[in-house]
Structures are given as C-alpha cells and as structure tokens.
C-alpha cells in the first residue's frame, strides 16, 4: 500500500482535452437536427476533461454545477486502443442533406409565394443552422474512439472523439504510461504477437 496517495494533495496538469459527452451518437444528433433544427444542438451531456495527475489520469465529468472524478493509475493500464469511426462521414452527409433540403425549401417557398409564406423564416433558420453545424463538424475533423484497459475494466474516453485531439493527447498518455511502467518492462513476459510500447 502506498500511503503517499492518501496523504498528499495531487498537482494536476491539463492534457487540454475537453469535450461534451454525447447522449446520442453524432449521426443521431445530425438526424435530430433535421427535425428540431438548431434546438437539436442543445441536447448535450456533461463535459469531460482529462488531466494528468503524475501517477494517474484524472477523468473529470463536469455538469456545470458539480465535478465527478475518476482516476486511472498509469501503472495499471494494459492497452490503449484507438480507431477511426464512420461517424464523421455519416454526420456530415446528414447535415449536408438537411442544409440543402431546408435552404431549397426556403428558396422554393420564397419563389412560389412571393415571400409571403410564414414557413420561409423557419426553413431558412433550420438550413443556416445546419450549414453552421456542418462547417463546425468539418473543421473539427475526423472522428475516432479511444479506450483503455486496466486489469479490471475497459474505459472509453469519449473526450478523445476527434482524431486531431487524440493525436495530440495520446502521445503524452503513452509517454506517461510507459514511464510509470518502466520497472515492469524488464520483468514482463514478452507479448505473443507485438512488441510492447507503441504501434
């Protein structure tokens, strides 16, 4: 037992990874936006952040009024997996279809009713909000999923849902984990198929 962990406060360093948790997958939010327009983007979960606690990774879930903390000790991380997902393409296609559809509807109503239809405004607002959401989605880049396994659990890190962010944070995590397990490297049994460390 390490009494240090229970007697001294930790100093944390930000890993600059912060994102909203999603109650729906990206394509689900995009599909909801086709029906609810800009209101769909208000359906958001709590914010997740990653902080480096020296010997552990601190995962913070922040709902705005309280923070919940989870700790994963670097020494116990066995594997870190990440892979690209198709969310990026699916959400982009849905948002683009919705934007084109609503803007076309607004234009068609404007043409056929000489601008008298009350539906022109809402259709234009829906179309423009979908265009903005599409632009934001494209700018933030491709999507990915990251998870890590310790001896007793597999933990998803939805905060690293964008490849650009994951590419920035994962090397730091790998370095921390490798450094924490330096003493294990010699004693560990060789892996059956791949060398230890990064891919």
């Amino acid at each position: 037992m390490d009494p240090e962990a229970h007697s001294h406060p930790q100093q944390y360093e930000p890993l600059r990874a912060r994102a909203r948790m999603r109650p729906l997958p990206r394509w689900g939010t995009a599909a909801l936006a086709l029906v609810l327009g800009p209101l769909a983007f208000l359906v958001r979960g709590s914010r997740q952040e990653l902080w480096d606690g020296g010997d552990h990774l601190l995962i913070i879930e922040d709902n705005g009024y309280a923070e919940r903390y989870r700790r994963v000790r670097y020494q116990e991380v066995e594997v870190l997996q990440h892979w690209p997902t198709s969310d990026y393409l699916q959400a982009a296609v849905l948002l683009a279809l919705g934007a084109v559809g609503y803007l076309a509807l607004a234009g068609w109503l404007y043409q056929t009713t000489d601008g008298d239809s009350l539906a022109i405004g809402p259709a234009a607002i829906f179309g423009v909000s979908l265009v903005l959401a599409l632009a934001s989605h494209l700018v933030r880049g491709p999507t990915t999923r990251v998870r890590l396994r310790t001896r007793v659990q597999v933990i998803e890190l939805p905060v690293l849902g964008r490849r650009r962010l994951a590419d920035r944070v994962l090397p730091r995590l790998r370095a921390r984990i490798s450094s924490a397990q330096e003493d294990l490297a010699g004693a560990a049994t060789a892996p059956p198929q791949a060398p230890t460390g990064t891919t």
């Binding site: 020494q75 790998r174 490297a185 560990a188 230890t196 891919t199």
Partner: peptide
Amino acid sequence: GFTLHADWFPAAFRP
C-alpha cells in the same frame, strides 16, 4: 479483420 491501433504496455504481460 477490423484494423485499429493498440498500444500494449508492460502491465499487460507481467506475471
């Protein structure tokens, strides 16, 4: 045949 990137660490192979 699904491909992904996995980083294995010594903890996975310790006795």
